[in-house]
Computed example of a mutant assay.
Amino acid sequence: MNRSLTATLRQYEAFDVVAETLHFGRAAQLLGVAQPALTQQIKQLEAEFGGELLFDRNRRRVLLTEFGETVLPEVRALLRQAHRVENIADAARGGRRGRIELAYIGSASYAGVLGRVLKTFRAGTDVDLVLHELDMDLQIREIVAGRIDAGFVRLPLSGVPDVLVTRDILEEDIMLALPRGHRLEGAESVRMADLCKESFIFTHLGPDLGFAACAYALCSDAGFTPHIAHRARQFTAIVSFVSAGLGVAFVPASVARMAEVGVSFVRISDATVTSRIGLAHLDAPTNPTLRRLLAILEPIDRL
């Protein structure tokens, strides 16, 4: 029956350094221990090996025995593996190694914030990054259920569990998308009072969630209730509906970068709110990679 060894990594390290220096005094200095303590570690290791001597030592020299020569390569391989485990554990603890699943809304990608954050996050790491494009209502459900670590969302969030928190990442102005030939086309800016009789295209979300909450707040602050002719899940579809002449729409400033034929974008001079993109996550994240992502988020940008 094979004996179970109880030798420690410190004893193996002591053996390795003495084998390298062939001098107990210098080895003790390198290891930062007293020479008697080092000698005791070697004796304990030899006892673990059934009393086989690792070194032939006398007053003039220290040499490896044949037994020591035989086990030394395996000891060094063991120490290399132990160091590798420590390095991997350190990287995982610091969020530089591991796995993270993130959700995002489509408008976070063309706002530029998604690419910027992920590029900074992945630099110098070995993280398995999994991305899902999901509507905000689905993101909230998946994050709360623990199936996704975090999600890029449009703020504000309301009516969500208290365990869900957000971090602001980007703030941008809200603009008005107009079809070509609209009476306000060509204006340098518009006022909210000019829009009270317009037909609007809104997102599919309710009046207290995400960009929809911002759009409803704009109209409420201006003293009117919007007439919503159509709804759509994505800003790309909303802009396409505007192009088709189905109505006008409030959109984040980044959407104005879309080169959609038949649509013009106009600044709202008296807008009372802005649109914000944030990262939603549980309030006590246990995933080290998520904690690292939160730590590197830059101060809020403005578009």
Rank of each mutant, 00 (worst) to 15 (best):
I100L: 08
V160A: 15
R231D: 00
R57W: 07
F152V: 04
I277R: 02
H227M: 11
R231K: 08
G262M: 03
A150S: 15
I201T: 03
F24C: 02
R257E: 06
R147K: 09
P288I: 08
V117I: 10
D56S: 12
T272H: 15
T286A: 15
D221E: 15
T203F: 11
R84H: 06
E260V: 12
G112P: 02
Q234G: 14
D208F: 03
F224W: 01
H83V: 07
R10T: 10
F202N: 00
I300C: 08
F67L: 03
V71M: 00
Y104G: 02
R231I: 01
Q81V: 10
L246E: 04
A111F: 03
I148P: 02
R183C: 11
I228E: 04
I140W: 05
V75D: 00
N2I: 12
G106Q: 11
V165I: 09
L53Q: 13
P285C: 03
L294F: 07
I201C: 02
D128T: 09
V144E: 04
E188T: 13
E69D: 06
H227G: 10
T286G: 13
L9V: 06
C214T: 06
V163Y: 10
E172Y: 03
Y216E: 06
V261H: 12
L279K: 02
V144D: 05
A82P: 08
E20W: 09
E188A: 13
D90Q: 14
S269R: 05
H83P: 07
F49A: 05
E198N: 07
M175I: 12
V251G: 00
N287E: 13
H23W: 14
L155N: 04
L53E: 07
L102I: 10
T225H: 11
G124T: 03
R116E: 12
V17Y: 08
R191S: 14
V144A: 09
L102K: 01
R257S: 09
M192S: 10
G278E: 02
M258N: 12
R154Q: 15
I100M: 05
D137I: 09
L282K: 10
A82E: 13
R61F: 04
R167Q: 11
D270C: 08
G115C: 05
A193D: 05
L279R: 08
A92R: 15
L164V: 10
S240N: 15
E198S: 04
L72H: 05
A7W: 11
V263N: 01
V62Q: 03
L164F: 10
S109T: 15
V163E: 14
M192E: 02
V273F: 07
A82D: 15
M136N: 14
V18R: 01
L205E: 08
I140F: 01
R76D: 04
P299K: 12
V273Y: 10
E133Q: 14
G223I: 04
Y216P: 05
T125K: 12
I169A: 06
A37Q: 15
R276E: 01
S275M: 05
L176D: 02
V261G: 11
R99G: 06
H182Q: 11
S269G: 09
F55R: 00
E86Y: 09
T203W: 14
Q139R: 09
V17I: 13
A14W: 00
H227P: 07
D137N: 12
A34N: 07
L209M: 14
L79E: 03
